[in-house]
Amino acid sequence: MYISVEKHKDNLLIQFKGELDHHSSEIVRQKIDQQYHDHGIRNIILDLRGLTFMDSSGIGLIMGRYKNCVEKKGKISIVNDNPHVDKILKMSGLLKIINVYPTIESAIENI
């Protein structure tokens, strides 16, 4: 699992690569929360397009970041085009509270 976290037009852009499961989610969580705190940016964009696997641990991870973001009065968005990830997201009910966009640009336009 590899993630890159960077400031992108007043958003914290987090790009995932690899497999997001219970094993990898712990390190990912720490990295995101640290950067979210350090940068002092409110809005988060989670780019899941590089994920080759995700189970319900990913749902827990996204829900947790959603809560942090709401606390800071920020907005969280997801970028995804992967049907497997979409299947899990749909099931989780997350799509009722977080919008999904096909590209980073379209996510930024709608924040």
Partner: peptide, 14 residues
């Protein structure tokens, strides 16, 4: 507290 979603069995069932 471990950020579990509680969706594991639901995923298996689905």
């Amino acid at each position: 507290n471990l950020e579990r979603s509680g969706m594991g069995f639901t995923v298996m069932e689905t």
